[in-house]
Every structure is written in C-alpha cells, then in structure tokens.
Design a protein around this nucleic acid. Sequence first.
DNA 1: TTGTATGCGTTATCAA
DNA 2: TTGATAACGCATACAA
Lengths: 334, 334
Amino acid sequence: MAATIKDIGRVAGVSTATVSRVINNLGGYNEETEKKVMAVAKALGYRKNESARSLVQKSTNTIGVIMPDVATTFYGDIINGLEDASYENGYSVILTHAGINGCRIHESLNLMGERRVDGIIIVSVELHEAEIEALMSLDIPFILLSTKTNREDTPYIKVDDFSAAYTAVNYLIENNHRVIGMAGANPDDPIAGTPRINGYIQALIDHEIKVDLNLIKAGDFSFESGKKAMQEFIKDQAPITAVFCASDETGLGIISICFENGISVPNDISLVGYDNSTVSYMSIPPLTTVAQPFYKMGSEGCLKLIGSIQNKTKIDSIVIPHELVIRQSVKKLS
Amino acid sequence: MAATIKDIGRVAGVSTATVSRVINNLGGYNEETEKKVMAVAKALGYRKNESARSLVQKSTNTIGVIMPDVATTFYGDIINGLEDASYENGYSVILTHAGINGCRIHESLNLMGERRVDGIIIVSVELHEAEIEALMSLDIPFILLSTKTNREDTPYIKVDDFSAAYTAVNYLIENNHRVIGMAGANPDDPIAGTPRINGYIQALIDHEIKVDLNLIKAGDFSFESGKKAMQEFIKDQAPITAVFCASDETGLGIISICFENGISVPNDISLVGYDNSTVSYMSIPPLTTVAQPFYKMGSEGCLKLIGSIQNKTKIDSIVIPHELVIRQSVKKLS
DNA sequence: TTGTATGCGTTATCAA
DNA sequence: TTGATAACGCATACAA
C-alpha cells in the first residue's frame, strides 16, 4: 500500500525521474516543482524503499556485526560505539551472534553476504582458517575487534593483551610485591588467554622473580574462576601477596572468597583486574584494573571500516593503548 | 561481480525461472537439471541477493530493534534472547539506539520504515504520544519490551514493576523490618520509577507501617545514587533497618558506603535489589534481588512478534512474572 | 529544468 | 518439467 515515486509523480504531474531527484535533493529543478513534489510526498506518506535503492545502487548502507554469544552483556560498549559511529555516517547495523564457540559463524557470514552488507565487523571471535577463507571470499571489507588472526591480511583493532598484562604485573612489582599469583585466564584461548599469561610471566622474568606454575590458576575469566582460584591459593597456603586477575569478574570472585576467610584486600592481598568493567568500581575495595577502551574500539573500528568502504582503501591494524586504572585494590609493600 | 541467477541460467543452459526454482527448491524439475544448476551455482560462487528478493516479495525477513543508549550494557540479555529467537526463525536483526532520552527515536523509526523491516521491537524506551503515532503509522507489527504506554493498542511484555517492588518490600516486612528506606528510583520515570515507589508505599500501607517520605531517596538507578542515598540516610540518622533499592547497582552503592562507615550488611542494615544483574551475585554479601527474566523477555517477545507477522494476528500484552532471588543481604529480625 | 527508458536481481504468472 | 516475461521501486544515462 505504501506510496512509490510513481504515485507521487502521477499526483504531482511530474516524472518519476524528477521525483527521485527531488527526494534525494540532487538539484536541477525549479523551486516550484520541488515544493509540489515534497508536498505530495508528505501527503501520501511516502517512505523510500531501501531494498529497491540498494538493488540499483549496489550498496546497502549496512554494516554487519558478528559477535560472540556473550558480547552484548560483556562487550556492550563495543556495540554502543560502533552503532553510534555507523549511525552518524548513515549506516545501519545488522547484528548476529556467532553462536556458542562460533558455531554459527558460517551461517552468519553467509547471511552477511546475502544481505550484501557494505562492511563486516567481527567482535571477539576466534577465527580459524576455514572461517577466514569464507570471510575473505565474500569480498566485503571487514575489520576484527578485540580479536585477531595469525594472518597479516586481516585488519584488527585490539589491545595488546601481552603488554597490558605486563603493565598490570609490573605495577604490582613496583609496589614491591614479589610473590604474585595469576587467576582466571584460559590457556587454550590464544586471544585473551595465553597473551595475558605470557605477559604475566615476562614481567616476573624481567624482574628476576622466579616463575612458579603453581601460582597460575587457570579458569574461564568468570567470577567462579576467581573463587576457585582463591580457594586453591588458600588450600595451597601459597605465600602470595598479590594476584593478577585475567578479568574483573575473576577479581571479584577472589575478593568474595577473601572476605569469607577474613583476608583483607588490599591489606593482606593485592589485586589487579582486567577490563575496567562496570563491576570493577563497585567492588570493595574498588578494583585497580587494566582498561580496554571498548567504546572507542567500536567507534574507531567502525569509522575505519566505513573509510575503507568509501575509499576502497586497505585498513591498517592498530593496537589500541590500554590504560591502568588505579583504584584501591593494591597495597604498596614496604 | 557477483553471479546472478541469469549467469547461472546462461551457463547451465536453463532459464532464470528454473534456476530460481532450484535455488529455493520449490520442486517441479527433474533431478538432472537440479544437479546441473546447483553445480553451476557453486562453481560461480553464487549468493542470492536479499535486496532483490525483498523487493519482489515485499518482505525483508528482518526485525528492527530500537533500544536505549545503555541497553547493550544493561539489558544485554534481552538482545541475546531476541537475536537467538529471530535467528532460529530465519530473521535478521537490525539494531539502532534511540539515543539519549530517546532523542533519536524518530529517526530510528523512520529508518525501520525505509528498510521495510517486517516487525519492530522497542526495548525499554518511554514512548510519548507523537512517537506512538509515528510508530503506528508505519503499519508494521511491533511489540514493546520492558516498557509500555498508557494506550491499549500497544502490546508489551514486561514485569509488573509495582508488584515486583511490592514483593521485595513485603519480603523485608516478613523478615520483621519496620523502618524501610527506598533508594535510587527516579520519580519522573513512569516506567521504572513511580511504579516501584508506589509498590514500596503500598506494601508499607498494607502492613500499617507509616510512610515517611524522608526515607525515599530519589536517584537514577545508578551506583552513585546508592552511595548518595546511604550518605543521606547516615546524615539524617534515619532509623532504618532495611532499604529497598530500585536497582542492583544502587544496592552496591549502598553497600559501598556502609562498608566505609563500618555498617554491616545485612547485620546492621538489610538490602533488596532489583534486576538480578550480574553484579548482584558478585557483591559482598550477595544481593537478594528481584529478577526480571531478560533473556526470556527478548526471546518470547520476538517469537510473539514473528507470530504476528506471519499470521497477521494481534499481539496480546503479557505481564511476565518476576521472581525474588534470595541471597544473603537480608537479615531476619527477631 | 524535465521526461523517457532501461536495468538492478529476484519472484511469479502464464503458457508451452 | 520448463521458459518467457512482467513486475517490484528506484536511480540514472540520455534526450529533449
């Protein structure tokens, strides 16, 4: 039932070409016809049909976003950032989950292809070779956010997890901590797991502190991981004075167990978290943590992608700086 | 460069009509041609063009979601739920922010109209008359999630905030609390503010407890609101034994100030939160709180919408049950 | 400044 | 079982 430019043309007594020109204000018509066309368009409640426009222009003004199943709760600010940036540039965002462990990623990519999105953003999903091939074969500009691959030709924006972890542990060492545990990282996760563990280890090595593998408690970045890690530390009677946590939630888990056992943070044990998530400033004490600029990652990534779409340029990967947000969970040892 | 059904037809030596039939497996062709067509399609790397399909079918298999600027961080699970449900039913999700205070909502609605989405989901945005009109005039099925209007013809799914608040306060009363404060609700928010305040008041009245307006500390559901409220309670020397918090974050704010002042939760003061957000179980003590089934709201709402799209039926509003999640922030008084 | 005509990639109707 | 062909709503090259 919706009115088309044909309808407008008929009523206004002009051709569809003229209507199209006016609607898109391309100029080249006198004021009178413009007014008439606009008036009729309004009267008829005209709304342009993006599908038709996309078909002829071969561009959908749409950006496809693929994110892991937990992204909205966890990386929400990335979504916010990229949605804002795309909105401001006249792009719409179409969103799909990659499913648990990326099991839906092929379907997602396929969908993006059929929808002819102008660009693709992949958030925090680990891509294997087959998936990279599928992505590249779409021949659509793309960028990875908070993840990367081992190939050179897949542009990304992310924090350097290794050096962020290094910074965090280094800060603990600067505060004279010498027996430092690590908790919550998943050693099977090549994106967020091993680099953080390695950063932790490297910081110790660089300060000639012996690395004790018993002090590394693996996990899955969760609150529960933190609880479990701390319980083990206690059981082990580990002589730690500080723990580097692979996520803020893990840090909160540790705090929780400490509280139960009358261990004071930071007096008895110091903590550095990772993410600067909303929970980090609500804990007791507020958590010193590594900040990843999620919102900026989203907006910047989106902007880069749009630039690449419009200028057909290649996107350079960038390592976005992390920041140590100092709150009150680390005590300076004398 | 992408191959079209025409290309396939040419190469395979059949008409576009046949190609289309095979691609959509509509039947009515012999196995041989099917094989040939499929082979050529694969060889050419054919991907169907959704824009073209949408144009002729007058349906985009797309659901538009409009959410407030904080939705992804706060109502993330709603997004998860509706994305899952739409995916399973072959719909894509297109996402936009309504902007701060819904300032972008008209543009968002316009966008949904131009994109010819098959249905619209509006999450937690307060709609005024003009916006309702704009929404209705699109003539696209829609549903509101975690919000409602004062009109009958705008279907929604939400928790009954009044009765949820009532439940929370009632629980405190059952535990023999008699001087109960309230914190964090915005009295200007007709969706999440006043109903919770009114539920609080009603629960008191029903138990013949005097309502003291000084015990109601307004706010904006934030952590800061909680801190401020508690600071005021302390300054007022309010004889409260419990506080009903309009959000979990507000509850955490209160805990934080209590801790600073050596006030024990729940020994000195009991707390009930609202939302059952991830922070609620990470606090010390874990927060007793009112749970809103966000994921289910998203999936259920999406399902209802899809049903309405496909069967052209009207959607019934439903009040989804809330639940009191009992943890450890309430002490039973003797 | 305006109009005519064509094509974008599909689906769908009709006829063969 | 297949093919020709007309839409779908729009943008645009070309002509007037």
